[in-house]
Design a protein around this nucleic acid. Sequence first.
RNA 1: GCUCGAGUGGUGGAAUUGGUAGACACGCUGGACUUAAAAUCCAGUGGACUGUAAGGUCCGUAUGGGUUCAAGUCCCAUCUCGAGUACCA
Length: 1067
Amino acid sequence: MEYNFNEIEAKWQKYWADNQTFKAIDGSTLPKYYVLDMFPYPSGAGLHVGHPLGYIASDIYARYKRHQGFNVLHPQGYDSFGLPAEQYAIQTGQHPALTTEANIATYRRQLDKIGFSFDWSREVRTSNPEYYKWTQWIFIQLFDSWYNKDTDKAEDIKTLVSKFKKAGNAQVRAVADEDIAVFTAEQWKGYPKEQQESILLQYRLTYLSETEVNWCPELGTVLANDEIINGFSERGGYPVIRKKMTQWSMRISAYAQRLLDGLQNIDWPHSLKDAQTNWIGRSQGASVRFQVLLPAQAEGKTSKMSFKELEALKEKRANPTKASALLWARLKKKKAASKFRANYTLGNYQVDFVCLAKQTVVEFSGKDNQAQRKDYFEKEGFQVLYITSKDIEKNVAAVLVHIETALQFPKTAAIYKTVDASIETPEIEVFTTRPDTIFGVTFMTLAPEHDLVTKITTAAQKTAVEAYVKATSKRSERERMADVKTISGVFTGAYASHPLTGDKIPIWIGDYVLASYGTGAVMAVPCGDQRDWDFAKHFKIVIKNIFKDVDVSEGAYAEKDAVIANSDFLNDLKVNKASKLAIFELEKRGFGSGKINYRLRDAVFSRQRYWGEPFPVYYKNGLPQTIDPAHLPIVLPEVEKYLPTKDGNPPLGNATEWAWDSRNKKVVSNDKLKNKTVYPLELNTMPGWAGSSWYFNRYMDPTNEGTFVSKEAANYWREVDLYIGGSEHATGHLLYARFWQKFLFDRGHLPVEEFAKKLINQGMILGTSAFVYRIEGTNTFVSKGLLADQKVQPLHVDVSLVNSSDELDVEAFKNHPMYSDFNTAEFLLEDGTYMVGREVEKMSKSKYNVVNPDAICVEHGADALRMFEMFLGPLEQAKPWKTSGISGVSSFLKKLWKLYHTTGVFGVSEEEPTQDELKILHKTIKKVQEDIEHFSFNTSVSTFMIAVNELAAQKCCKKAILEPLLVLISPYAPHIAEELWNQLGHTSSIATASFPVFESKYLVESSKVYPISFNGKMRFTLELPLDLSKEALEKTVLAHEKTRAQLKGKTPKKVIVVPGKIVNIVG
RNA sequence: GCUCGAGUGGUGGAAUUGGUAGACACGCUGGACUUAAAAUCCAGUGGACUGUAAGGUCCGUAUGGGUUCAAGUCCCAUCUCGAGUACCA
């Protein structure tokens, strides 16, 4: 009987489909195991051999887990919304749904050929309305939620509204837009509905806002940060510019810390966790506010404390008056009750004593500006008490009673705020990771796009600043990035006041400061930051050194082991302590606070595309309203053209049926927009990552029409146990999916906070591109070996025209329709053949190095393809595809077949196996099991080869050996295993067989071949009994003639004996 | 620049806890079968030296150091390649 793999494979693929062999059972009493692949985007090019690598690995694991008795969920589906189908629609007018349908059919046919154990009854497609109904539903959930920092989770927007009603927004700690106006409960209740709505929009987890976006003019859409590579679009490679647009955003920044913390609890590759950690980019430091000086103030005086006042303050601290010292000594003792501070700065004044908790100022009466001060303190919500030196000296206790009595009635309503941001004195807020270097600030730099630029620029500098801002805005992001070395900037003419010294700090503009990070402004410390240093040097700004025993004349000193000097109260401290103290002091004076900043930005969620999920949103008086979930899905409308409209609206602007009838709850024709109850629908669609951010949950309950996943299904399947896919999704899909999972968990829709316990990145399979070399300006091609110094142009040639010895089929090349330009070309051959050049590159259509798995399946079989892909090397490593090696696994499968067909027909014996045969089997069980559990699939393929070679050498045809062997192999080569299993007389699928149990008794040895080494180098081996004692072992070895020959009469210094392992003689 | 990962025969790779480096396979060489080829089977295959032969000797895991009885594996430095990220304050 021949091993006819084509026939066998087709037979069993049909059997599995007909019998639904791999259907997962919901709520089974068996332990569950969920194995998931990243679902593919069904591109028109179909699968190449690189795609199935991860699928084969996960399939082996899924099949293995079934043999282990698990109820395995191993689904597959399609991420079927996306750009290529739409681009194709623009060119041809073919509806993307049709293109997608056709591509999916091709994918399915190709996948089926490889024999995956997918449960196809659970297939999902993100572009199906039954699926995206729930994507729209999740969007609504996000819209109806806000992030409460106090509970550290997302909550229903209703809880926010009730907080507003109760006490306004002053006490609410939320992750929300910046600069939200403070209002009281009364004010909130008095606001018109529209105003309430727009306030809520500033808190929602998905919100509409005018933001700087990455606009790609060629694609006519915005892109997320992770869709851009070096200033060009990931798809198509078109330039991307910055543009202000009103867009939907997702408040992923609310989850920055939890996304970071969650990495501790999941078994994902180290490098991937690193990528996410970098992307989130947590940095700890301080936010510092610098007061901009008015022109008059810049002349000399500052509004806050002057340098002189500061000196006076120090003086006063050092030498308190008798009365002051007396009272302070008593107040200090009361610490626990109400903490007082002495000589404290409040706004522009320095008060004698203050209790911040009780909002009480205690001052010596009789100051020159007493009335002014009182006014200010009371405006800030403090009560003011007056005392006199005389009273204190006479009876401190009485004064204390007076103070304590007053403390019992503090003004409750007022909120303590030291910031007095008036229009005349704007502030510049900066973020710094090095607050300890604050005394080294000698200038400030704003991004050219910073809001304050126009406000603070002086008349004298206006022209220069405007010219600079204009010049930088013209430069693309790309240019700005490429050109890091050129230092450019301009002085605004304005100054700020240093918060601790009162020094005048010049304010500059420079494009090395990015508008999109932090606050778009920096406090420049040239002695501690190279970019600041370069800027200062270039524009001849003072560089003040604040590091002890460090020379900064040649460059900045950025080491973390610095000791601070020349910095008042920070002198002689190291980074950590100095930072803490600097933050403490800034907080005390109301000029800043400790802050953690994240690089992670909120994700833009709108795309100006057709082929994506429509938003369940309509606009009433310009404000977005979500559609009641009961009326979902909002189905993508038909359009004439897939391009943007003439007036620049997204493609959905072409739809004629795209208005929401709020009375009849349905989508109606745009003609009806005249009606009062009909409103325009959102024209943007959702980005590609919307559908892929939750699909793994849908597989648990794919057809549920009442909910996105039922509680029962979610509680049974919980999360993905093993997720396999490419590392290119590190900062896109995998971050967004974690974000949505955490959100749905917060809102009580899911039982787990991380969606995938373990994740493995399969390495890319690289193509081996082939090149022909054309002499420049001619139609002559030179064989690779004849390339001398002549100028040639290398051209990719399709790898199907080249054999494995790198010889080009010249005739086929000339006649190939793709190369019709060259059918008259001349070829300079060597030894009668044309040799191509080879290079390993990413496998892609444009490089003509794509190898199709279908051809491999026809020629060698799916089992051979599966085994070969695993045999190529470690799963996680990138490796080049070289078809030559496939003959190895092909002949292995033939040898395997032969074991069961020694006489040409099927035949196994019922005879008892020998000890040797049992040893081979159990050694294989042990190794294969270990390998699968370590995802070391390449080594288990070798193990099978060894086992089959050894059994063939033993001429073993015993059923007791060959039957369990099939179960071991079946995850890797399921078709041949299923066929032979069937021939052994089984009527049910091998998939239901349990994995053979390893028994160590068969591997017990009585002797061991010991390596005998001399000074660590193995010289010969000796077979010795394993039960020999250490001493006996040493004696036997030393007595051996070979040992004596090695030692050449010398006495060994030392003998190391590790029983069962090694003997090492040191001489 | 920063972060992470990797360097082992002609090639893909193996060596799971520091303990016989090169498993398994490709390729190559020789042989068997055949008119011939393919397929299949057998033998050899890290390098250098040595021996008629069995065998023996030395070197060898990017480079240089170190720890250890013993290092591909651990530590330090250097070089090369790959991936991610990038004026991130």
